[in-house]
Amino acid sequence: MHNRMIKRHDQPSILIHWFNAACWFFLLATGLGLISNPALQPIVQWWPKLMRDLFGGGAALLKVHIIVGVVWAGIWLIFIIAGIARYTLPFLKQIMTYKLPRDIQWMIKKNIQMTLGYKNMARMVKLLGWNGEIPDQGFYNAGQKAAAVGMIAGAVVLVVTGVIMAISKVYLSSAQTPLVQWSITIHYMAAAVTFGILLIHIYMAAISSEERPAFISMFTGEVPEEYARHHHKLWYEKVDI
């Protein structure tokens, strides 16, 4: 078959993706650096020290974390509002539309296939009375949709708790400090949840050979027809080529 290229992402989507990725890594690195308490630091104790040496002390590290956080959330806010009809609503609709029997089957089958291979998957799902075929998916597969919901929920929690912490010293009274205290803990939890999702996302995109064309499309905007047909058939069938 002639393997033509199909447009998958436009320029603004690609730009905001890599802007988001850069901010996310920066905020993750600096955020981990802010947790210098040994009872709370989840990775290694030298990380906060390294970050503080790099940015010139804890206060400077906090400042740069807040500034990048505000820029990240601000650019997103502009993108979300300016792109409400073109990007935001269609995207939200896409990631929140689930065809339940199909998507649940996809989730179970794909997870087994990704770790144990097609043959083992077919053998195992036979116990559930299913065949070994992985159900077709739309523009996003069920895993991508669930990950997107998790990332957005995590991002909203990170922004809300981040704002509360950032205004603590400006607007909040002593009576409101329990709000700040819980914001710190919840901010950490949301960051951990999104990081867990991010690990899978990065594996799929950058390491998994199956999804290599999707990774390349995050730069070029295009995927090969064969990839689209195999991985996103319901979308492929609707695309005008």
Partner: peptide, 15 residues
Amino acid sequence: NDTPNKKDEGGNKDA
């Protein structure tokens, strides 16, 4: 070289 069975090629629209 993990690939689907031949009959799976083309996916399964009825799932």
